[in-house]
Design a protein around this nucleic acid. Structure first.
Lengths: 200, 200
DNA sequence: ATTGTGTTTAACAAAATTGTTAAACAAAGA
DNA sequence: TCTTTGTTTAACAATTTTGTTAAACACAAT
C-alpha cells in the first residue's frame, strides 16, 4: 500500500469541512469536494460510502473538536465566572470564524432529513458539561452578577451575539456597505461588546 | 382564459416561500414545490422560467413585505425611541417566526452564486430607512440611553438576539432537550429579555 | 520475482432534476 | 359557433449527480 497517500481520506475530509462549514456551499457536490481535495471523485465513495456518510463524519469530527476545546478551556476547575465566559467567547468565536456555517448546516440537514437517517444528528443530546455550565450561570444570577432570567435564555443570548454576526456576514456586508476589512474589524470588537452587554 | 385559476401563480409562490423560508428546505426541488402547491410541475416553469427565477421572485416579495411593515410601524415620526425599538422587535420577531430561514437562505445563495447571476441579490443595498435608524441609535447613545459603541454593532446585537434563537431552534431543542411548546415559550419571553439586555 | 493488500482510475449504470415542446383544454368574445 | 387567448398536461430531451464495478497501479512482505 502507498503510505505516502494515506492522507487522502483526510484531504477529502478537510475539503468537505471547508466547503460545507467554512464556505457555506450547502449543496456542494461530491465532484466539487473531490476537486477541492485534488483527488478523483471515486475516492469519495471509496473512503466514505456516500455523500451523506462523509457529511456525518466531518460533522462528528468538527463537533468533537469543538467539545474538546471547550472542555479544556471553559471546563477548567476553580476559575472565576468572568474568565470562564471570556474563555467561552474566545473558543466559540474562533470556532465560529473557522466554521461559520456548521450549526446552520446541521439545522438545514435536520430540516431535510425527516426520515431521521443520520445517527450523528439523532445522537445530539444534552451533555453534562452543558448542564454544569447552565448551573454556573444560575449561580451567578443568584449572586446578582447577571440579570435574572432562565439560564437557558442567557445561553441563547450569548450564542446569538457570538454566532449570528458571523453567519450573516455576506448579507450584512452588502446591506451595511462595508468592506471585508471593516466587517472583520467589527467582529473583533464584539468580544468586549458581548461582555459589556451580558455581564453588566 | 380561466379566471378562477389565476391564483395558480400565487399558490406556487406561497408553496415556495413555505418550503424555502419557513421549513428551511434549502434544496427543495421544483417537483416538491409543485406538490406542495398542488399543481403540475410544468406550471412552475410556465409561470417562472426556472427555479432560480422563482426563488428570486419570492425573495423579492418577502423582502418588500418586510420593508413595508417596518416602514409603517418603526418608521413613524415622533415616537419615543423605546417604542420604536419595541416596534422593531415585534415586526422582526414576527417575520422571523414566519420565515425563519429567509436571511440564511439568502446567504446560502450568495455563497453558491459566485457568478452573481441574481439581480435581486445584487441589488441589495443600504437604504435610507436603515441610515435613519442608525442615526437614531447614535443619538440615543449620545443621550446616554444606550451603551456607547458603533451604531452598527447595536444593530448587529439586536438582530442576533432576535433571529438566531429562531433559526437554531431545531438544533437547540435537541441540545437543550426541551419540547416544542417549551421552546416557543422561551421565544415569547425574549422580547422583554432583549429590551432589558440592550436598553439598560 | 511474485504475491497480496490497499489505493486509484476510468467506464458504466441508474436516478434525479431541470427545462422544453406540442397538444389538450377551458373560457371569453366576435 | 368559431376563434382567440391563456392555462394545463404529458411526453420528451438534456444534464447533473450519485454510486458501482472491474481493471490498473504501487508498494511491502515473502
Amino acid at each position: 500500500m502507498a503510505i505516502k497517500d494515506s492522507h487522502t481520506e483526510q484531504q477529502i475530509k478537510e475539503a468537505a469541512k471547508r466547503l460545507f462549514f467554512k464556505e457555506g456551499r450547502f449543496k456542494a457536490t461530491t465532484q466539487e469536494i473531490a476537486d477541492a481535495a485534488g483527488v478523483n471523485r471515486t475516492l469519495v465513495n471509496y473512503y466514505f460510502r456516500s455523500r451523506d456518510v462523509l457529511f456525518d463524519e466531518v460533522l462528528k469530527d468538527a463537533r468533537e473538536a469543538m467539545t474538546n476545546r471547550l472542555k479544556t478551556s471553559v471546563g477548567q476547575e476553580d476559575i472565576p465566572f468572568r474568565v470562564r465566559i471570556e474563555s467561552f467567547i474566545d473558543v466559540v468565536m474562533e470556532h465560529s470564524l473557522t466554521y461559520p456555517y456548521m450549526d446552520i448546516y446541521i439545522v438545514s440537514r435536520m430540516n431535510d432529513d425527516f426520515n431521521h437517517e443520520s445517527d450523528i444528528i439523532a445522537n445530539i443530546k444534552k451533555n453534562e458539561d452543558l448542564k454544569m455550565f447552565l448551573k454556573m450561570i444560575e449561580g451567578e444570577m443568584n449572586k446578582g452578577n447577571i440579570e435574572k432570567m432562565e439560564p437557558v435564555q442567557f445561553l441563547l443570548s450569548l450564542m446569538s451575539l457570538l454566532i449570528y454576526p458571523v453567519i450573516i456576514q455576506p448579507l450584512f456586508k452588502k446591506v451595511l456597505q462595508v468592506t471585508d476589512r471593516q466587517y472583520q474589524h467589527l467582529l473583533k470588537e464584539r468580544k468586549e461588546i458581548i461582555l459589556k452587554t451580558l455581564l453588566k
